[in-house]
Structures are given as C-alpha cells and as structure tokens.
Simulated scan of single mutants.
Amino acid sequence: MNSHSLRETAAVALSLLDLTNLKDDCTPAQISALCARAQTPFGNSAAICIWPRFVAQARGILGADHPVKIATVVNFPSGEMEIADVAAETREAIADGADEIDLVIPYRALMSGNERAVTVMVTAVRAECMAPVILKVIIETGELKDVALIGRASELAIEAGADFIKTSTGKVAVNATLEAADIMLRSIRQSGGKVGFKAAGGIGSVADASLYLRLAETIMAPDWAMPSTFRFGASGLLDDILVVLSGGQSSGAASGY
C-alpha cells in the first residue's frame, strides 16, 4: 500500500474508530483524556467506548449532541448477568447519556446449545434502546471458535434486533480476526438487513485496519464502510492513525484492545 492510500485509509479508520478504555482500573482523569483524544486535528473518532460508571462524566465533558458518540458496555465482559440486571444497567447508561450500547451475549449458554438465551437477552436490551440509541451485540468470536457457531450467533443477534454485530470484548485470548469478520459480514449480507459490523480487540495499526476494510468492501460493497455500518473498537489504533496522518510510517504491528 503506498503512502497516499495508507493516509486515505487512516482518515477513514479515524472516522470509524470507537476509541476505547475498558481497563479495569480506568480513572476519571483517563476518561477526560479519552474525550480530548477523540477530537483530533484531523477530525473526530466516531465514538468513545467506556465503562457505564463513566458515561455521565463523559456526557458532561462532551455536552449534548456532540459528534463523538458515547458507547458503553453491558453484561460485560462475562455475558453471564441476569437479564433484569442487564436491562437495568442499559436503562441507567442511557439515562446518563449513552448513545450506543455494546451488549455481550450469553455466549457460554450458546456454546452449550441454548440459542434462546441469546434471543431473549438481545430482545430485552433492544427494548431498552429506543432510537436513536444504537445496539451493538458482542458475540465473542474467539471463545465461540466454531465457524457454524459464529455464524449462528450472528444470525440470532441480527434477528433479535442488533444494529451492529461486534467480534469481541477484547478481554479474552483471541479477539478480532479476519476469519471471524468474514463469517459475520457474510451473515449480515445474507440477512439483507441494515446491520453494521464492529471489529474489536487486537487492531493496532492502519495496516491492520486496511485488511478489515478491504474484506468489508469485498463482501458487502465498495464504500459500504461508514460510521453507521462499520466500527473499529481499539485503544492503540489512534496512535498509528495520527502518525500516518502526520506523514509518518504505520507501525504495522497489532496490539491489544
């Protein structure tokens, strides 16, 4: 990839980035810094993705109707909370100012053959996410592993009303992979619905990002990827984006979430 197209990819990736801090020891000071980092000299990231306890703080910093959206996580990262608790967590996050909810499905239940657990969970949280709130459903592909299971989890999430399907929490050994992305994007195409895709965890460079964008273009359509249909969930990717947009060289190395 030449430097011109790499820079174009970096600009696109910035517009699709959910700049993330889901570290267990995240502090209010780090959230303030994240809100500032999301607004770069080259444009804004699509969103920040943070723990529910920080949503009200971030909304206070960004104000109403800010172009940088606030995403938060529920049933995270285990996927094993009670439905009523997840619904309450979702309601509270939206009341605090969340624009987007990233929900972990009960993936272990699915692995044991319980498809209904996924449908019931996604349906319940979907009911809390009134427009314009966006629901992204995390299927934890690195734990599901099996091609058929990843495909089925994608189908169940889409059928239950997901606006996006997302690869990973970033909290397990294997996070986003191109193989999982391929299965999920094909599930979206097959559904015929207006559903987006989010690759999360392990995407640390513009070179990495370009592979996912190229895959989306191949399976869906050229120019399909935009903030309403495609996101990257990452903490380290912004650093590489800014290097490339400033005229430097992409690190080309993957990193953690």
Rank of each mutant, 00 (worst) to 15 (best):
Ile150Ser: 04
Asp25Ala: 15
Gly151Trp: 07
Glu100Cys: 01
Lys194Tyr: 13
Thr123Leu: 11
Gly248Ala: 13
Gly60Glu: 13
Pro132His: 06
Val243Ile: 14
Leu135Ala: 04
Leu103Trp: 03
Asn175Asp: 15
Arg53Val: 13
Thr141Asn: 01
Asp85Phe: 03
Lys198Asp: 01
Ile94Leu: 10
Pro106Val: 14
Glu143Gln: 13
Thr72Pro: 03
Ile165Lys: 11
Ile188Asn: 06
Asp25Arg: 13
Gly113Met: 08
Leu178Ala: 08
Ser15Leu: 03
Lys23Asp: 11
Arg7Met: 11
Asp223His: 14
Ala71Gly: 12
Gly252Ala: 08
Val12Phe: 08
Ala10Asp: 04
Met1Pro: 06
Val133Ala: 07
Ala131Gln: 06
Met121Asn: 08
Leu103His: 04
Arg59Met: 11
Val74Glu: 02
Gly113Val: 12
Gln249Glu: 14
Val86Glu: 00
Gln39Tyr: 00
Arg59Phe: 12
Ala46Met: 02
Val244Glu: 01
Ser3Arg: 07
Leu242Glu: 15
Val243Tyr: 14
Ile219Gln: 09
Leu156Met: 03
Ile165Phe: 07
Gln190Lys: 10
Glu155Met: 11
Leu17Glu: 02
Gly248Glu: 11
Pro67Glu: 02
Ala88Val: 10
Pro67Ala: 05
Ala84Met: 10
Arg116Ser: 12
Phe230Arg: 02
